[in-house]
Write a protein that binds this DNA or RNA. Structure first.
Lengths: 268, 268
DNA sequence: TGTCAAAATTGGCGCGTTGTCATTTTTGAC
DNA sequence: GTCAAAAATGACAACGCGCCAATTTTGACA
């Protein structure tokens, strides 16, 4: 009925139009362009990717691409949004791996590590997009979309902290407000993990400075932060270690799954 | 012979040649190019700076610039080296502001904040240079130079930690090795401060997430890390605050001084 | 199935930027 | 004043982006 009525072709359901095959193809092209650009970025590095190359991969011409994205930076931002969305999915999955707030918190940290390891190109894309030349030329709509995705990543962490306060695992010492404590913790853990991973990826001098196990340092420091605020149960090396060992393969599998997911085209 | 022989003009001391006026000007031009590029970067943003614009500022043609730098990225790297050197000077000055290791450590953190506030363009340049498109095209020599400068910044912090261990303010608990403890602390503080400042500068979603005082969070978290490791004297809000208030204006003055310093030309 | 307007695609154009190089100019020793 | 070495110049080719008029494709209607 809503489907093939006459012998000719398609028709419209009132609210949501059933699109003809070609029309759907066009709609999906936005996503296909990203699929084409993604491996090019992986191979050649981000600056070296030309519109020409993307078009070649797509088997169309540059002009067509401009029907979907206003410029190269716009494509980059769209890629970044897809990446942040994957990160968010990692985090959301991570918090399902335990009922205990402190373990959930740890799981998010490990999820970030796995994200960097299993989806390194996504991580690199996020980095690049952050910087002004790209950020400024991207369309405002896409900027907002990206910011909102990041927001949700942060919310995931705040949620766990909120749950810890509710449950009493984390208490408000020294008359600090709940708001303030959350702020401090979110920002602290975020800086520690994000900053640490960025440094690991981009600072060649770290090795010379005798920093040979950045991941261990990150983990230990996060726990130090949590301990200092009295988040119960306090750090226990054995328990922590076995939790990490237990969830890491699950997180890796989830990352792989995300990579293979069909390209949901982003609302352009 | 090697000295001033004839009446005409210049001559060479054996090891270090005494250069004629024009020769010295050429030698200094490398630095002058950086001076020309720096404000352009400040105004127009980094990607928008063209060789043409730099040449105009220098009152010469593009060709001449290529006598000193192999490409634009090379100029950027040179600028970054100058920036990192300024940061290093900030750190070196910071550690002179107290005799107590823990205060010295705090001083380095505040120095980083002041660096970002008073030399924002330097901070931005550092960020940009870190990213692959630039990093890969810069000449290897300059890359090494930059890495070495960063190294010295890190050494400054390791030194303070070393002194704290020597003096007994910081003790090796749980049989952790000195090497390992230093590694963990350097990396942790670095991530926390660097990561925090980068996030503050580039993450628009932070405000929405209720993070309104990132600086306070950074400081408090650093102290949490130090406390957790038992670095004496433990955090005391009053003492810390008054130390910060005492050194901040000094650090700001030092930053201003660095800005006005004549351009020592980097070895190209 | 043929017609035709709307929509999408094409590919060539103008512009700006980069890096090179043969030519011209400047420098400074004699 | 002469001349070789060094440096500056500016024109040139290549490239990539973004635009747009011309062309092709699509799909509704008869």
């Amino acid at each position: 009925m809503s489907a093939s009525s006459s012998s000719t072709n398609c028709s419209n359901a009132p609210g949501s139009p059933v699109l003809s095959a070609k029309q759907r193809e066009i709609r999906a092209r936005g996503g296909r362009i990203l699929d084409a650009a993604y491996p090019l970025v992986r191979e050649k590095g981000l600056a070296a990717v030309s519109m020409e190359a993307i078009a070649r991969e797509m088997q169309c011409t540059r002009g067509t691409i401009y029907n979907h994205y206003v410029n190269k930076e716009d494509i980059l931002s769209a890629l970044a949004t897809r990446s942040v969305r994957r990160r968010m999915e990692m985090f959301r999955y991570a918090v399902t791996l335990s009922d205990q707030p402190r373990e959930r918190c740890a799981a998010i940290g490990i999820a970030a590590e796995v994200y960097v390891d299993c989806l390194p190109d996504d991580f690199a894309i996020e980095q690049t997009t952050r910087h002004d030349p790209v950020w400024q030329k991207a369309s405002p709509t896409r900027r907002e979309l990206l910011a909102e995705c990041e927001q949700q990543c942060i919310n995931c962490l705040s949620g766990v902290i909120g749950a810890a306060i509710e449950s009493g695992d984390l208490t408000l010492a020294n008359g600090i407000s709940r708001q303030r404590l959350t702020e401090q913790l979110v920002f602290g853990l975020w800086s520690l993990v994000y900053g640490g991973l960025v440094l690991e990826a981009t600072s060649p001098s770290l090795g010379n400075a005798g920093i040979s196990h950045p991941r261990i340092a990150i983990r230990r420091n996060c726990n130090a932060l949590l301990d200092d605020l009295g988040w119960r149960p306090l750090y226990d090396a054995g328990a922590y270690q076995s939790f990490v060992v237990a969830i890491t393969p699950k997180l890796r599998r989830h990352a792989k799954r995300l990579l293979e997911q069909p390209a949901e085209d982003s609302p352009a």
